[in-house]
């Protein structure tokens, strides 16, 4: 564990240097790609940054808490729908249930998306966390599918076809239709999220959560109400996915039940695994790798899942620890 790692060790310093380099690269990325004539890469990078938030939020419960949720797309999609529905009402001028007017201001839609996803996670988590192990996997998958069917049947909001969001939300009057601005907005929120995660997993809360993963019974015996900690983590994770979904709807200018589909949950899990379970930046690495792999394979054949599927099986069978584990080995770390 980390405790055995000396703060001033060369390993930590090397990792810190790597982190600074990556951050610098992220900051100059839109300008560099434009200068080099690959302007569309900025858009792709935005997608990765947004997806990394969702993967990281899943990692909180899956990697640190040991709760294998196969229904994380529920919160991702609902976060997206909050933006979509508010936009639809802003356009039509009709108030939602005659109560709340629609809006397309990110300063309203984002907090509201977080709130809705948090409440949903509280409700679903309160029921799902009564189970554990394989039942938890099944029940989270089933609940996500329930939400999926709900939105498919909501014909008022497009049903199967989904909702178009013609214009991106404004952010305190700032127009983020420009791809570079939206990239920096997403990057800023992602950095905030990852900073929050870094503090959270090393706080007392995070330590309890990791303790629960190792042995829930042990934590219960030392007097900790494990259910409450798990539920709190589940709610935070749901809100993170909601944040990501809300941004994604803005990015794609579109939201549909596909965002809620179980394949989406599966993809988020793959990212967490590829990057390295229970590591802070693993999910971000996983998002980069999976999304890049998908777009490379998709350019090669439309049946790219035929390659991705077996690749995944091989990774699981023979390559443990994910890419982050590989990086640790390369930078000489033995303590992560």
């Amino acid at each position: 564990m980390d405790e055995t790692c000396d703060i001033a060790s060369p390993v930590k310093r090397r990792r810190a240097a790597l982190l600074v380099a990556v951050l610098a690269a992220l900051l100059i990325l839109p300008f560099a790609t434009q200068a080099l004539g690959y302007g569309s890469l900025t858009s792709f990078a935005t997608r990765i940054v947004i997806t990394a938030i969702a993967a990281s939020s899943l990692n909180l419960i899956l990697g640190y808490g040991g709760m294998i949720s196969f229904g994380h797309a529920a919160f991702y999609g609902v976060g997206g729908y909050v933006v979509g529905i508010l936009y639809a009402h802003a356009r039509s001028g009709e108030a939602i249930w005659g109560l709340m007017p629609g809006t397309s201001d990110l300063a309203v839609t984002l907090p509201l998306g977080l709130l809705v996803c948090g409440l949903l996670a509280l409700l679903l988590g309160a029921i799902s966390l009564r189970t554990s192990g394989v039942q938890f996997i099944m029940i989270t998958l089933a609940f996500a599918q329930m939400i999926y069917f709900l939105f498919v049947s909501l014909k008022a909001y497009g049903g199967d076809d989904g909702l178009s969001v013609r214009r991106r939300n404004e952010f305190f009057g700032l127009d983020v239709r420009d791809d570079t601005r939206f990239y920096f907005l997403s990057l800023g929120l992602a950095l905030l999220w990852f900073g929050f995660m870094a503090r959270l997993v090393n706080s007392r809360f995070g330590l309890v959560l990791r303790g629960i993963r190792q042995s829930e019974r042990r934590m219960a015996v030392i007097g900790i109400s494990t259910y409450r900690y798990k539920l709190a983590a589940y709610v935070i994770a749901g809100m993170g996915a909601g944040l990501s979904g809300a941004l994604m709807t803005n990015y794609a200018r579109f939201v549909s039940p596909d965002m809620l589909h179980w394949v989406q949950s599966g993809e988020l899990m793959i990212m967490v695994i590829l990057g390295g379970v229970g590591t802070l930046l693993g999910p971000a690495i996983g998002a980069v790798v999976l999304l890049s792999l998908e777009s490379v394979l998709a350019a090669y054949t439309e049946h790219w899942q035929v390659i991705l599927g077996p690749f995944l099986v091989l990774v699981i069978l023979f390559w443990r620890g994910g890419i982050n584990g590989l990086i640790s080995r390369l930078t000489g770390a033995r303590c992560e």
Binding site: M269, I270, Q305, L308, G309, L312, I316
Partner: peptide
């Protein structure tokens, strides 16, 4: 879960 998920992608 993930290995068998990979199998689903392949078979479908």
């Amino acid at each position: 879960v993930l290995a068998t998920y990979g199998l689903i992608l392949f078979f479908n």
